[in-house]
């Protein structure tokens, strides 16, 4: 395991479907927050299996537990009941092995570090040498369109640019499992399209496994192999929709009938969640 990210970027290898090894395996998992007034069931009976090379999007209205589910996978939140393994290990053991990279909903940059040193922060922690750190930082900053901003400080950048730095930081870590919580929520439409293409290409060529939280149906359909539709109070999985578009995606594909059909199914699922709720 873990070798895919260091392979040369070659279509021939990457387009070979990854073996169906479960990376994340969740069984009847529930999580109840013990809030001051009354407990909140953030996740209720979640069953989900994410295989190596999958791109899974979590979609659903606010408060349906998307962030919480991602945080459980990342061992940032403890489930109340049920089982979960990440790379066959407990989430804690996986975290300690640095199994994943996490893009938070907010940029979470350290204001005393320059853009470059923010990107290299995890690389310092895992003990890479300086030249390698700078190489990776330059590569990922270029990918998110921020080449030339290395020496700036986060507060000299717009909110969208800051979020792109945080994406570059997660990518520079070169994790096999990428957990992203509405990473493009704060970006304008054009930048968002651009980064969607980049992310899709990165996923296709490196064979990473991605779990991606979004509010946007078309973003979910464009990026994913599977779309998990969730509903709130209590947080449940309503439907898991296979998104069997070709692995190589282009933005034009969004106009195709196949794309529209899948999007309609997702929209339908979301609407059902609402009628179920109210």
């Amino acid at each position: 395991m873990g070798s895919s990210s260091t392979l040369p970027v070659a279509e021939a290898i990457a387009t070979t479907p990854a073996e169906n090894r479960p990376i994340v395996d969740i069984r009847t998992l529930s999580l109840i927050f013990k809030a001051a007034d009354k407990p909140v069931t953030a996740l209720d009976g979640i069953d989900l299996r994410i295989n190596s090379g999958d791109f899974v999007s979590l979609i659903g209205p606010s408060g349906c537990g998307k962030t919480t589910l991602l945080r459980v996978i990342a061992d940032l939140e403890q489930p109340t009941s049920g089982d979960i393994t990440v790379n066959g290990l407990t989430p804690e053991a996986a975290r300690l092995k640095r199994a994943y990279g996490y893009v938070f909903q907010a940029p979470a940059l350290y204001p005393w570090r320059t853009v470059e040193r923010n990107v290299t922060l995890p690389l310092e922690i895992i003990g890479l040498d300086k030249t390698e750190r700078q190489r990776r930082s330059a590569q990922q900053l270029a990918l998110v369109g921020l080449a030339g901003f290395e020496k700036k400080f986060p507060w000299q950048l717009s909110g969208g640019m800051q979020q792109r730095v945080s994406i570059a930081r997660a990518l520079a870590f070169e994790p096999d499992l990428l957990l992203m919580d509405e990473p493009f929520g704060a970006l304008d439409e054009i930048t968002r399209d651009h980064l969607n293409s980049q992310l899709s290409r990165l996923w296709r060529t490196t064979g990473k496994t991605c779990v991606f939280v979004t509010h946007s149906i078309s973003e979910a359909v464009f990026l994913s192999t599977r779309i998990v539709v969730m509903s709130p109070r209590p947080g449940r999985i309503l439907d898991v929709i296979d998104c069997d578009l070709p692995r190589e995606r282009s933005l034009e594909m969004r106009e195709s009938q196949r794309f529209q059909d899948i999007a309609a199914r997702v929209r339908h699922g979301l609407a059902e969640g609402h009628s179920y709720d109210e």
Binding site: L76, R95, Y100, F104, P122, F173
Partner: peptide, 12 residues
């Protein structure tokens, strides 16, 4: 902030 601490935690 909690999110800054979470980031460190995610890097073990």
């Amino acid at each position: 902030e909690a999110i800054q601490l979470d980031l460190m935690r995610s890097y073990a």
